[in-house]
Design a protein around this nucleic acid. Structure first.
Lengths: 269, 269
DNA sequence: CTAATAGTGTCTATTAGACAGTATGTT
DNA sequence: AACATACTGTCTAATAGACACTATTAG
């Protein structure tokens, strides 16, 4: 039998029925003004969540996502969904992880590939769909348990994830959801996976600049690094490290009640 | 409608038909004796390939793999296949990447999640299936093109992959197969993804020890690091770095025509 | 003037890189 | 003895961490 004949007689229906979905972790940095006019605004992670209109997990919040179409490449699905939700094109998208436990969705067997999108919220001047909302992320680590609190000023969601060290098989750590009364599916795992991924690669890549506006001060950039790395950095060391990633402009940001700050641009190479 | 009612009336058949497969990159380190009795044997990567018996890509080599069953967790599929091929249980397995281009398989729409398995070949005393073979890996990098040559002493396979820097969307680099006359599917991409992943994490994790026997000399361990990092290391620096990852034993390896080498064990923490 | 951040100089500590030297078993 | 590797001491270079100092502006 030739390959051609084989393919002609091939019956895809004889195999099990799976569906493929994709979930997108859309991350951005948001600022909260302080009560003191002189102080810099606080920066934190934000994630875009959608309130589900349909079963299952009706009325719960979840990551934007949807089914992959049979005629689109896997990585085109998150692009399409991202554009639907935010009207943004040409966004940094990175595949995170594929989840495929038998019972992860009550409807049927669904394999879900998650992606992480990094955006600069300021570019997002379009109105969000009414069932979408940005939630600020707060992470609390306590030995082997991570608590994440999501807050959109009206609602607070939270969940706990346990980090188990596995000696062999399937990666070094296994993350398992311990407590989750607020977020649909296994989406808590996706959020944590994204935060960890970004923390891991921020120092040896230029991904941060996908979350920055065109002009920014080094103080702002440093704050973003601090959010991602979840620790404070010393000014001189930070400036040494990012020196060749940015280009100084002759613009300044004034009005802060202190010395004006020079604006920089990303130095693409 | 309650969630229960919703699920009762849910018809999975109305959605598109996908199949999920998994491919496993089984990596190991192999040694080639030198013609000089005094010299250390050369170390290199080896990958386990299977000669396809069926269409498509009949009689071509490919990574071991297969369809995920509808009643097994995604990550249980590579475990099952690995045990089938090698009779090894409890092996280090790590999810690599999920490939899902529309035309990646001529049969039907197949999404494939690839995994990387790291093993110590010496543990593999069982005979391999007759259509399986270890291929030594040789990598040649030339600006933005990577050539990989696979050699099992009888056959030589080779392929070229182009590394394109993408400013935005879907990761930092896009790997695309430029030339491949020997390996089935998009498996060249999986091999390269695995080598890159391992290179990236070998210094900040302990994964190497999954490829090592229980007792090993520091010279051997250093050779393995050198294969993975694809560069030579200086002895004193290497010994400083791995000092607290290993435990010295009072055993020695003799017979090399030079000073005996102390045997070490992995220091689990 | 003051509070707050911007930005830099410099010292120190730590880590990485390099090289040379000593040690030792097999032929 | 000669060769090849094992193993260590030490110097230097590079990088990271820390702190202190100057600069500048809105109120």
């Amino acid at each position: 039998m030739t390959e051609e004949d084989f393919l002609k007689s091939y019956n895809p229906k004889k195999y099990d029925n799976f569906a493929i979905s994709t979930d997108i972790l859309i991350l951005s940095i948001s600022s909260t003004d302080q009560n003191n006019y002189r102080k810099l605004s606080n920066k934190s992670y934000s994630v875009l969540l959608i309130k589900r209109k349909n079963h299952p997990f009706k009325d719960k919040w979840c990551l934007p996502g949807g089914f992959v179409r049979v005629d689109e490449d896997l990585e085109d699905a998150p692009k399409r969904i991202l554009e639907n939700e935010t009207n943004l094109k040409n966004i940094y998208l990175e595949q995170l992880y594929t989840y495929g436990d038998v019972n992860r969705d009550p409807r049927m067997r669904i394999i879900s590939t998650s992606y992480m999108a990094l955006i600069d919220k300021n570019r997002l001047n379009e109105k969000l769909p009414e069932n979408a909302s940005w939630f600020k992320i707060k992470k609390i680590e306590d030995k082997d348990t991570v608590t994440i609190i999501l807050d959109n000023d009206k609602e607070m969601l939270s969940f706990d994830i346990k980090k188990t060290l596995k000696e062999k098989t399937t990666d070094r750590y296994k993350f398992s959801i311990v407590k989750n009364d607020s977020l649909a599916f296994d989406h808590p795992l996706v959020i944590l996976a994204g935060l960890e991924r970004l923390k891991g690669k921020v120092t040896y890549t230029d991904v941060v600049f996908n979350m920055m506006p065109e002009y920014f001060t080094l103080g702002e950039l440093q704050q973003v690094y601090e959010v991602i790395l979840d620790k404070e950095l010393l000014d001189p060391a930070f400036r040494r490290i990012i020196a060749d990633k940015v280009i100084a402009t002759d613009k300044y940001k004034t009005g802060g009640g202190h010395r004006p700050s020079r604006l920089f641009k990303y130095n693409k190479k």
